[in-house]
Amino acid sequence: MATNPRQSAVDPPSDDKRWRIVQAAMRRNGFRRDALIETLHAVQESFGYLDEESLRYVARSLRAPMSHVYGVSTFYHFFSLKPAGEHTCVVCTGTACYIKGAPGLLDAVGKEFHIGDGETTEDGKVSLLTARCLGSCGLAPAAVFDGQVAGKVNREAVVERLHAWQNGPAAVKASPESSPESEGSAVYA
């Protein structure tokens, strides 16, 4: 093991290559405790969420108390301690989106798929999240389907899109190549 714990990392929990990204993030910040949030970002980006194992690893590596790591992870809404579904739908609940019908979108998803904010459908296919203003107020109401922002969406379009995810995963998985038209027909009002 290391002679100077500040310079060398604790061994990652597994051989998974993604841990290297996490280690790199910590090394970039000199394994300082204040790099906790940056490190958690790296973990979430690599693994999709923060599990207990990764929190333990980060705590040991940064020599931070575990309760502190857990406290920070749960303070910020951006971090998730649960794995998300195969697909994620983020509904913007910013003011502009709110007055232009965001509650209706959430309501529709809730009624149709029985999931609320932060929940995933039983089959693990679709997660519903909300965001505090995507800054796409000009296109309110806005939603993000698997990372792609869609503006001026309506209830039917959202439900249709989520159904498509549930029924045929490969067929409709949003890809950057898909033309805006095909997207538009599904999502835009």
Partner: peptide
């Protein structure tokens, strides 16, 4: 100097926790 306790969550949902919000009796620290 143990820093066993901290807070989790925020707002009215804030709770005191030990370690990774585990049972106090299982706390390592």
């Amino acid at each position: 100097g143990a820093h066993t306790w901290d807070l989790m969550g925020r707002g009215v949902k804030t709770r005191v926790i030990t370690d990774l919000a585990e049972a106090w009796g299982d706390s390592e620290s």
